[in-house]
Each structure stands twice: as C-alpha cells, then as structure tokens.
Write a protein that binds this DNA or RNA. Structure first.
Length: 579
RNA sequence: GCGGGCGUAACUCAAUUGGUAGAGUGUCAGCCUUCCAAGCUGAAUGUUGAGGGUUCGAGUCCCUUCGCCCGCUCCA
C-alpha cells in the first residue's frame, strides 16, 4: 500500500460499510461459517458473488491462456495452463525460501508488546543483563561495529531520493542530526542506482557499517566504529530508555527470537509427526516452477513462453482485515513467463503495462487504479537484482487516499528454477535447452501475480454507485463482462400472454448468457432489484410486443429505454456484452 | 499479537431502575397493476453472536469466548 496522491480522495458516498452491507444483502459475499460466529479471514461467495468472481477468472483465463495478446515482438504469446495441488512435497517450500525466509524470526518487547523482526534489530535482541558491565557491552558494540559481515539488512540501509550524492548527503545529515554521529560514507550501490523513483530521480542509499539500533523512541542510532564517545552515547541512550525496554532486571527486555509461521501446516496421512508435516501452499507459483520440466517436455513450448495457473493459496495472516482484501484463504491468478535473461527489461515492461491495461479493460478504468513501481528497498528476496517490480494498485474505500495491491509484476530472475535445481538434485537437467542456439540455461521469469478475491472486491467497489434518484438508491455499475447477470426478461404484467413470450425469450437467452426472468410484483421493483445486482439490460415484454414483436430494452446506467425487435435481442446482447 | 469501540429479524433501528423482544424496510403468497421499490389482504423469520455466572426474573449486570470496525504490529 502506498500513501501517494493524497490530494485526491475516493468518490463520495462509497462507504465500505455500505458496500459490505450490499454484498451481504444481495448475496455477493458472506462470512464463512457465519451461523457458528464466523471465522476470521475466511469468506464465502454467494449466488451473485460466485458469478462475478467466475467472470473475473474466466476473463483472465481467456485473455491470458486461450486468446493472449501479441507480445512485444509482435507474435502471439505462447501460453499454457496448469493446475497444481495445494499440498506439495514440503521440500518445495524449503527450496522456495518459504520455510525460513517466510518465517521471519521475531522478537517481542515483553513490556510494550511491540514486535520487531529479529534481523532488523540485530544486537539489540541480545539480552544484556543488568549485571553485565558497561565495559562488556561496549566491547560487544565495538565488535559489532567492526564486523564487516554485517551487511544490510543487518546494517542500516537508509535510502533517499536525490539527484546527486551531495544532495543525498544533506538529507542524511538532517536525518542524523539528533545523534552525535557523522556520516562516514555514502554508498550509491549499483542496486540503488537501478531503482528510480516515480519522479525519475535515482534512489541513493546510505549504507552504514554497523547495525542500526532501534530505540523505543524510534531514533536510529549509528555509532561510528572507531569513536569511543559515540558508543558511550549510544549506551547512555540505552540506559535512559531502559525503563521502556525492560523491568530493570533483565537488561533490554526483548524476548528470544520466535518463529511466526505464516504457512498453514497440516499432516499427510493418519500419523501426525514431523515426517508427515506438510503445508498448504502460500502461493501457486511454486507449483509452476516444480512442473517446469514437465511442461517443457510435453507441450512444445519455446522460450519465451508462459505458464498460467488459477488456484487457492493460504497464508496464516497475523491480522486479516478489510473484508476480503486480506484473507487467509484466497485465490491467485498467476503467470510465470519464462524468458532469455537478456530480454528481462523488455518483457518486464511489457507485462507491467499490459497487466495494468487489462485491469482497466474490465472496468477499473478510472483514477482509482494506478501502476506503481517499487522502490528498491521494498523488493522481495528473489527480486533484488531484477529488472524491477511494480504493483497494480486500487484505491479501495478502506485504503483511500492510499492504495491496495491487486497484482504484482516482478522479475524473479532465475532464482526459483535454480533453487529447485539445487534442492531437487535435478541440477542442470532443469535447464532449458535452446535448439537454435545450442545453448542450455535457466530462463529468467517475469511473474504477474494477481489476486482474484482482491480483484473481485475492487470490481465491487468500483461498481458501487449511489444514486438517490432511483428506487434502490444505489446501483452496481459493473462492466458488462463482469456483471453476474447479463440481462433480465420481464413481462410488464403477469397476464395477457406476456409471461409466455418472456419465458420463451428467457429460455433462448440462457443457453448463452446468465439471465433471469421474473413476473412477480411491479415492474419498478424488478428494475430496482436488477440495479442492485448490476444487471446491464432488462428486456420487457408489453402489450405492444404482442402486436409488433418489439420489446423494451432498459439500460441500467441511464435508465433509458428503447424498443428493438424480439428477434434482435441475442444480437443486441452479443454486441453489448460480448460472447 | 496489543490497545480502543461495537454485536437485537435479511437490512436500519426500538425495548423505562433488570419485568411478556417490537417497528419500518425487504422477503414470500394472493388480488390488483400496461414501465421504475405504487396499492390492498395475509404470512414467515430471532435460542438478543456463543458459553457460563448473579437473580424469582437478564437484550440490559459480571466473566469467558467468537466475530466486526479503528489504531499499532505484520503483510516473505
């Protein structure tokens, strides 16, 4: 999420509470196992919701696998699908780094209950005792200061956006002015230079040679390694802040590092022991990498090509929140696109831009959708050296004025294939062989990874349109391709032969489209219900139909009406909805 | 995981110092109805989130728990 563009806000009248209420009332989304009090982080899709989400997934599958666009070289993309299991050999997650990296050891301040990643406060989570002498602590600090192996993330890794090193120098000087420490050097690392901020200026990193110490006051202290006074000052800060850190009996009162496991664990087979332990996949991507060899061997694909998968993934999030936005069980739509390493920049740009355009094409066309290039310091472990990472982000009512991620496009390099080559023992056999160039190599990967539930939620939020002038006070302005119900067929009144005509038209249309018919109650009430369901068109059979074979088309967005011949209705839908 | 707020029908809300759980909307059925939730008649729906306690008696007081919202934290 980002806080960019704070000057604009989400459209007025779009309260998340109202959207959630409509989702419940009209059967889009329910809380899972609600009659038992629900379960945090799990959501069910009702009759309208499942249609909506299917439309999203099927549009994705159609546009990615069945009917992909042309690539940057002008040729149609080579794409195939895949459907892997949720539970895989646990070694997959060791290779991918999810066992270990995903489970960052955390330390907790036992008094304030605040939690930090252990690697970010290295040195501090070492528990000094009050009887430990200042000299001992000082010695440890000096050792740390001279430990050249402590590189980021262990060392402080401050960055700023600046046009030159001297400008950055001024920034860092300001940032550190409340400490007695001076900047000893500025490293404009290669990786920092590659990252360019949104305003086009390079990101310049300050890499300091010793660990940063986080005090409770959020001061970042950076002792110069050879300055005795600096180290003494730092110790003094510890002393002064000890009341906040500890109960005075245990020095700096942080717990031992603990694992906070974000992967769901289960057991395969009846016996529950370490040998039977397995995980629910935290992402669908690894199933694709694990099957890379199989797909290459069986489907005649050639680099560049992509493998796509839609499926459930699971993360035991610390804090599920914001409706379905952060769920513990969720569905991903992922592409792993395999390319020659030297073409990474080109393909990365292609996927970044085409994925953004795709979200626009399904109705998120307004200013609530943005494309955001990541800063270097927020990149995932596998993407540090890549061509880049960006997010397609949507301004949800609950993130406004900030944004929430819908899809991430990342250059994963050849990290995953190499990891699996090593851990599986397959080694070079996992490499791709290029016949033309007689060359064997690990392809690089551009990964566009989208959230189906987040996408559905964004479509819901975007469609929600308050309108006091209509009976329903609100209507869902879905893109026709997303609308759960494409059209409704109504007899104006429930007599005089109109129901029969309506029924015949309904039976014809439902062969191809999700349509509904309803003869009960007043026509206004039926239109109003369709407004809340987001149905783009209603066809109404009236007295005139019986005479001249024309029906009324009622447009959802404008409430305008026109007459067309009943025989032209399928063609009308084909034109306005698409096949 | 921490702190704060909140849970009464599908929705929005009532219910006197603790004293028979109600209304409107929606939903459903019938009638009526020739274009935007119209009208008439009728109907269904709650273990007051759940569990325990105090009490003759708990929606109301106490404890526990679950869920939702906000702020931290987390989001590889």
């Amino acid at each position: 999420m980002s806080e960019k563009d704070a000057s604009t806000t989400t459209a007025p009248g779009k309260s998340m509470d109202a959207i959630v209420a409509l989702c419940r009332r009209r059967g889009f989304i329910f809380q899972s196992s609600e009659i038992y009090g629900g379960i945090n982080g799990f959501w069910d899709y009702g009759p309208l919701g499942v249609e909506l989400k299917r439309n999203l997934k099927e549009a994705w599958w159609h546009d990615i696998v069945r009917c992909p666009a042309d690539g940057p070289d002008g040729k149609p993309l080579d794409m195939v699908g895949l459907d892997c299991t949720i539970i895989m050999n646990p070694k997959v997650w060791v290779a991918s780094g999810h066992v270990g990296g995903f489970n960052d050891p955390m330390v907790e301040n036992e008094k304030t209950k605040k939690r930090y990643r252990a690697d970010q406060i290295y040195g501090l989570y070492k528990r000094y005792r009050s009887e430990d002498s200042i000299e001992l602590q000082l010695k440890e600090l000096i050792d740390l200061a001279h430990d050249k192996t402590l590189q980021p993330p262990y060392g402080p890794n401050l960055t700023c956006t600046a046009g030159s090193a001297s400008e950055a120098f001024g920034y860092f000087q300001g940032a550190l002015q409340k400490t007695p420490y001076k900047i000893t050097r500025i490293d404009v690392t290669e990786s920092s230079f590659e990252s360019v901020s949104s305003d086009g200026r390079p990101v310049i990193g300050l890499v300091l040679p010793v660990p940063m110490f986080l005090l409770e006051t959020s001061i970042a202290c950076v002792p110069s390694p050879d300055n005795h006074d600096d180290l003494m000052w730092l110790l003094k800060q510890y002393e002064n802040n000890r009341g906040q850190f500890s109960d005075t009996s245990k020095g700096f009162d942080l717990s031992e590092p603990r694992q906070f496991n974000l992967m769901f664990q289960t057991n395969v087979g009846a016996v529950q022991n370490d040998a039977s332990a397995a995980y629910l996949r935290p992402e669908t991507a690894q199933g694709i990498f694990a099957n890379f060899r199989n797909v290459v061997d069986t489907s005649r694909v050639k680099v560049p090509f992509g493998i796509a998968q839609v499926g459930k993934a699971f993360r035991n999030e610390v804090t599920p929140r914001n409706f379905t936005f952060r769920s513990r069980e969720f569905e991903q739509m992922e592409i792993e696109f395999f390319i020659r390493p030297e073409s990474a920049k080109e393909w990365y740009a292609y996927w970044r831009d085409s994925r953004f355009a795709w979200w626009q094409s399904i109705g998120l066309a307004g200013e609530n959708l943005i494309l955001r290039e990541h800063d270097k310091d927020e990149l995932a472990h596998y993407a540090k050296e890549g061509a880049g990472t960006s997010d397609v982000e949507y301004r949800f009512p609950f993130t406004a004025p900030g944004y929430g991620e819908l899809e991430g496009v990342a250059h994963r390099t050849d990290f995953d294939l190499r990891q699996h080559a090593e851990h599986s023992g397959y080694g070079d056999k996992l490499k791709y062989f290029d016949q033309e160039k007689n060359e064997r190599y690990f392809p690089h990967v551009i990964e566009p990874s989208a959230g189906a539930d987040r996408g559905t939620l964004a479509v819901l939020c975007e469609a929600y349109t308050p309108d006091d002038s209509r009976a329903s006070k609100v209507y869902m302005k879905f893109h026709p391709r997303m609308a759960p119900i494409k059209a409704a067929v109504f007899p104006l009144v429930n007599k005089d032969g109109m129901p029969e005509v309506a029924h015949t038209l309904y039976k014809t249309l439902r062969e191809k489209y999700a349509v509904q018919t309803d003869a009960k109650q007043s026509i206004g009430k039926r239109y109003a219900r369709m407004d809340e369901a987001g149905t783009p068109y209603c066809f109404t059979i009236d007295g005139q139909t019986l005479e001249d074979q024309t029906v009324t088309v009622r447009h959802r967005d404008t409430q305008a009406q026109e007459r067309i011949n009943v025989d032209k209705v399928p063609a009308f839908l084909a034109e306005h909805i698409g096949a």
